[in-house]
């Protein structure tokens, strides 16, 4: 059993511990190392894109739900200017999320060319 995001071993997470209030949602959230492992497995089974997705996901594990939801919203059509998207990319780079930063840079370029940036 791997550990949860908090570092707690899954074996220590029991119904009894939940009743006693000793378990947080971070104890039952996936750890980035586990996603890295799943990425390796996906790559070995002929799906490099699924592997890449798991690696982007590993970066997002460290971010709050609210921030992740706000990043999603920023990528929806017409929500962000070209510069805003690049700002997000810089923030993500600084936050140790280079793969997601690259996604935002690509989006900035594609959205500008296709008229999908905020006016």
């Amino acid at each position: 059993m791997p550990q949860g995001f908090s570092g707690k071993d899954s074996n220590e997470v029991s119904v009894d511990a939940i009743r006693k209030g000793e378990v947080t949602i971070d104890d039952v959230r996936i750890h980035p190392d586990t996603l890295e492992h799943q990425a390796t497995v996906a790559g070995e089974h002929g799906n490099a894109q699924l592997a890449a997705n798991f690696r982007r996901a590993a970066e997002l594990t460290r971010m709050t739900d609210e921030y992740v939801l706000s990043l999603y919203d920023a990528l929806r059509p017409g929500r962000s200017t070209h510069d805003t998207l690049l700002e997000y990319a810089r923030d993500l780079e600084a936050a140790g999320a280079p793969l997601n930063a690259e996604l935002f840079r690509q989006a900035a370029s594609a959205y500008q060319r296709r008229g999908l940036t905020a006016q």
């Binding site: 996936i30 997705n53 982007r56 970066e59 059509p77 996604l103 989006a107 999908l116």
Partner: peptide
């Protein structure tokens, strides 16, 4: 098609991000 995709209030990038967001919560 791009037009219908955007009418659905998403782009390939936002959907790709969403895909990773789900995986990030297992």
């Amino acid at each position: 098609t791009e037009q219908i995709f955007v009418d659905g209030d998403d782009t390939p990038w936002s959907k790709a991000f969403l895909t990773s967001a789900y995986a990030s919560r297992g």
